[in-house]
Amino acid sequence: MKRQRGVVLLLALSLSLLLGLLAAQGLREALVQQQLMSEQLAGARAFEQAEASLVEGAALLSTHLPEECSACLPPGLPGDDPVPPWQATDRGYVLLQNLGESTKAAGMPAGEQVTLFRVTAVSRQVHGRRALEAMYALDGAAVVRRISWRQRLEDD
């Protein structure tokens, strides 16, 4: 009879250990899911900030136009604290580039003379930072139209 009590105790301890391991695994999985959701949320916030900065950058085109650039390469993404020629907006940073005039802009009537601008925007949020670019056409009536858009990959 005493042997049977020892077996029951051993069985109870084994089951307790197994339940403890299952609980620890469940907690670990919950932490991983929380981290993934946190990163997703940070990325979504950064994207919204970059999109808002892009809209603010397009609005800047109606107030002051940048000089035409000679070598209009896409800019490198700024660090944590962008410096000129990057401009701070409420939600992020923008860089405006005047690409010159064209009569062959996408989505515009054939032969219409427009001035093309590249607006690059990045979010203020450093963690999960997003960078967006859009091309705008300014026609003779001073109407600004977005003609293309892209999300740039992060530079590591």
Rank of each mutant, 00 (worst) to 15 (best):
Ala59Val: 03
Leu17Glu: 01
Ser123Asn: 03
Phe47Thr: 04
Gln49Val: 00
Cys72Ala: 08
Ala44Glu: 08
Leu10Met: 10
Arg124Ser: 12
Gln35Phe: 04
Gln125Leu: 15
Cys69Asn: 07
Ser70Val: 15
Leu96Met: 06
Glu101Phe: 11
Ser14Pro: 08
Ser62Glu: 13
Glu56Gln: 14
Leu36Ser: 06
Val126Gly: 04
Ala50Ile: 07
Val126Asp: 11
Ala121Leu: 02
Gln87Val: 09
Leu95Met: 14
Asp90Met: 08
Leu9Arg: 03
Ala23Tyr: 03
Arg129Ala: 09
Tyr93Asn: 06
Leu77Val: 04
Glu68Ser: 11
Leu77Trp: 03
Pro75Thr: 06
Gln35Ala: 15
Pro84Thr: 09
Ala134Phe: 00
Ser123Asp: 06
Ser123Met: 01
Tyr136Ser: 04
Leu138Arg: 13
Pro66Tyr: 06
Ala121Arg: 06
Arg129Leu: 01
Asp81His: 13
Asp80Trp: 10
Leu61Tyr: 07
Val126Phe: 11
Gly128Ala: 00
Glu56Gly: 00
Gly6Pro: 01
Arg124Gln: 14
Thr63Lys: 11
Ala42Ile: 02
Arg152Lys: 03
Gly57Ile: 01
Leu11Tyr: 00
Ala12Cys: 11
Leu54Trp: 06
Val8Gln: 10
Glu51Arg: 15
Ala50Asn: 06
Thr63Gly: 03
Tyr136Leu: 10
Ala142Val: 10
Asp139Glu: 05
Leu21Phe: 15
Gln40Met: 12
Glu154Leu: 13
Arg152Gln: 14
Ala142Trp: 15
Gly92Lys: 02
Gln97Met: 14
Trp149Pro: 01
Leu21Gly: 07
Arg124Val: 00
Thr89Ile: 09
Gly111Asp: 09
Asp155Thr: 11
Tyr136Trp: 11
Ala44Arg: 12
Trp86Ala: 02
Gln33Tyr: 11
Leu96Gly: 02
Val143Trp: 12
Ala121Lys: 01
Tyr93Ser: 07
Ala131Glu: 01
Gly107Ala: 00
Leu22Arg: 05
Cys69Ile: 07
Lys104Thr: 14
Leu96Asn: 03
Leu19Phe: 05
Ala106Cys: 00
Asp156Phe: 15
Arg45Gln: 15
Val144Thr: 02
Arg28Gln: 13
Leu11Lys: 02
Val144Cys: 07
Ser70His: 13
Leu60Val: 08
Leu22Asn: 01
Pro66Leu: 07
Gln49Lys: 02
Arg150His: 12
Leu132Gln: 04
Gln33His: 11
Trp86Phe: 09
Val7Ala: 13
Ala42Pro: 07
Val119Trp: 05
Gln34Lys: 01
Val55Phe: 05
Arg91Phe: 12
Leu13Phe: 12
Gly100Pro: 04
Val114Ala: 07
Gly76Met: 09
Arg130His: 08
Ala42Gln: 10
Thr89Tyr: 09
Leu17Gly: 15
Glu39Lys: 12
Glu112Val: 14
Glu29His: 10
Leu15Pro: 07
Leu60Asp: 00
Asn98Ser: 05
Ala58Ile: 05
Trp86Met: 13
Glu112Lys: 13
Ala44Leu: 15
Gly43Met: 09
Pro109Ile: 07
His64Trp: 08
Val55Met: 05
Leu65Asp: 05
Ser148Gln: 11
Ala106Arg: 12
Ala24Trp: 13
Gly57Ser: 03
Gln151Arg: 13
Leu116Phe: 00
Thr89Asn: 05
Arg145Cys: 01
Val126His: 09
His127Gln: 14
Leu132Phe: 05
Ala42Met: 13
Asp80Ile: 14
Val119Asp: 06
Ala142Leu: 15
Leu19Trp: 12
Cys69Gln: 06
